[in-house]
Design a binder for these strands. Structure first.
Lengths: 233, 233
DNA sequence: AAAAAAATATGCTCTTTAGCATATTTTGTA
DNA sequence: TACAAAATATGCTAAAGAGCATATTTTTTT
């Protein structure tokens, strides 16, 4: 955990509007209890089972939230992008952490001390409500994901993953390349399949002219087809 | 939707302590906006895609929360027991309903009008916080379930389902029979497998003297073994 | 009580996908 | 630049589990 507390980082509330629910005093209080930490690629930010000490906001970079299942096989639960919050669920549920989080690429994380965050969320009802809405959305997403991952076949799951990456991270300037370059192994762990199957299925999509590959860059050529494959399973 | 508004039902707040977060005035307000509805076995309470109009509390009976996946195949997301809340997630996320709910057996549901519930949750921060805690727990459960269902094999998934039914509904007076008699088809939809496989695997468990079957009654003979099977996948 | 419908039980086949091996390419590092 | 390590690609085999058929039992309806 390579600490580096520099001054030229934006303030919390410049990154996510949820902080606007706080009064000026509360903002200062949270800011005083916030540390900024840099993580290198693949560095672990926190582990499943850890007792949460900070609520976190990703300021820069990309991170994966994952669980280790049977035989340590990792399942990526969700991928985060800048301004997303994490590590607060366990805190609120008063549980130890359910998931691990690691940096997909070099990332900057704002860490707010548990006590400070909990104090504000318990006393500021508008702020509390915003977090509830976030969790309600995440819960819906998680239930949808359960069905997608359990019922769809390899092709459907991978198509789904590509679409959700596009949705989450957007496209490069060419308007077709997904702005997220992940390894085949991560693709597999995201879509619940073996690495070999992720590789094979991506190759098939290339043959069928649904996507084009250039190393880890994935260009979507036929989004409609991808949507159809994802729908049919 | 067989309505039957009788007077001898307990008040909301006698069923779930969360209502104790409300002031007397708020309690009356919620009570005035609450209808009690009876559902027959297998009757649908609400459907995926419905726009939520009421937050609901199960007062009596058992209900299944499920999603229809590929080819209408239902996946049971969770089973509820009396005093559990449901149908509030979509409301809070401002989405249409993500899941369907149907009565597993004859059930009594308290339905609180959306506006009344939303008004209270937006203004009473202690009440809001309680719901946030509930959702945080559900979200953790949902993520765990995703990994269980995707990574474990049939035996592990079924063992897991039996243990969670025991956990949720408890045991009969004999201290071994799960107090929940579900069809093999429901068992299959809960554990993400075909009905034939649920039947087959239950039979195997009987042969191995892990459980005993008497129609739909399931008696757990060797819980340790069940736990081991569930752990190993 | 009889008939019909639904649920349970079991066997067989075939598809999907995991597991493994191996070759090749790319990336990171000395 | 060269070497080692990691990632990608692809083929073969085996296992898990779905799909289907059919028989039997249980439940519901007439």
């Amino acid at each position: 955990m390579a600490k580096k507390t520099v001054t030229d980082y934006p303030k919390l509330w410049e990154l996510n509007e949820v902080w606007q629910m706080l009064s000026d005093d509360e903002k200062v209080y949270i800011n005083d209890n916030c540390t900024i930490v840099n993580f290198r690629k693949n560095e672990i930010i926190h582990k499943e089972g850890d007792v949460p000490t900070h609520m976190m906001m990703l300021a820069k970079g990309k991170v994966r939230v994952y669980k280790e299942g049977i035989g340590k096989k990792p399942q990526i639960i969700r991928m985060l992008k800048p301004c997303d919050f994490f590590a607060y669920r366990a805190m609120i549920a008063n549980e130890s952490s359910n998931t691990s989080v690691s940096a997909f690429e070099a990332s900057v994380v704002y860490m707010v001390k548990k006590d400070a965050f909990m104090h504000v969320i318990e006393t500021n009802s508008r702020f509390c409500y915003q977090f509830m809405v976030m969790m309600a959305r995440d819960l819906g997403q998680s239930d949808r994901r359960t069905v997608n991952l359990t019922q769809k076949h390899v092709r459907g799951r991978l198509a789904e993953a590509l679409l959700s990456l596009k949705q989450n991270y957007g496209l490069d300037d060419d308007g077709a390349t997904i702005s997220m370059y992940m390894s085949r192994e991560d693709m597999a762990n995201l879509s619940n399949m073996t690495t070999a199957n992720a590789i094979r299925t991506l190759s098939n999509f290339v043959e069928e002219e649904i996507i084009a590959l250039d190393g880890r860059k994935i260009k979507i050529l036929d989004e409609d087809k991808l949507i159809r494959i994802s729908r049919l399973g």
